[in-house]
Amino acid sequence: MRTRGWFARIALVLGLVFLYVPIVSMIVFSFNNSRLVTVWDAAHSPTLRWYGVLVHNEQILTAAWLSIRIAVTAASAAVVLGTLAGVALARFGAFRGRLLLAGMVTAPIVMPEVITGLSLLLLFVAMAQLVGWPRGVGAVTIALAHITFCMAYVTVVVQSRLAGFDESLEEAAMDLGARPLKVFFRITLPLILPAIASGWLLAFTLSWDDLVITQFVAGPGSSTLPMVVFSKVRFGVTPDVNALATILVLLVAAGIGISTVWMRYQQRRRERDLQLAAAANL
């Protein structure tokens, strides 16, 4: 027991080091004055020089703004579609077309991105030929593609949340006189709201981060942030990308940190309530 426990624990520590060394080194070198990125210029560092370069980089700012708009659109639409699919899969039992929906909805999660990207572009080309829409590839086609693979993740999150909930909650509401639509808005939706929220965040992140699929369905003038970054780093390391990465990592860490603290607070309150209830037991 003991030896294996130690082995696993050491592996955990080393694994976490492995996960964080690259991120930390990227953050450290974002404050380096040297253009040579990995050579520490002790005389003039730390410096915020590359952050200054970054905020004046018109191309990056434009791309970031486009990425944000696409990610918000894609996440919002994916949440609606994914919730519908999740509710259908978790609550409708065996309906006609269930296998089709279940199969299609999880496939984009594992599908190699190059294939998804290629197939979506070929679809848009074929549609433009047949119905004259979309007129060309750009922000709209990127959003459509992102909605498609993001909804898969939302579906999975919503479906597993619903699976954890007793179906008799909805039956009880119906038994007390609520019609199906009302049951959904008064009971089901409030229960899955946390899942929908995390589904939205997940979808936002995936859309914001996607490169491969986006490259296929993007057109001239619709470069997202990952596309710009990719074209920059393909030919080597550039210090302002370090600065960009640092900002993103800190934003995400802050967000996750706050949500963790909040969840812990909730958890603790819940535990206290449970103790109170147990004390008041008849």
């Binding site: 007793d166 008799s168 909650l169 039956e171 009880a172 119906m174 038994d175 006189g177 609520a178």
Partner: peptide, 20 residues
């Protein structure tokens, strides 16, 4: 007649109290 229009109510085994 659907459950929401019946003059019948049920106490569930799990109680099914709405947690929220």
């Amino acid at each position: 007649v659907p459950p929401y229009e019946r003059p019948v109510n049920m106490m569930f085994q799990s109680y099914a109290l709405f947690p929220h």
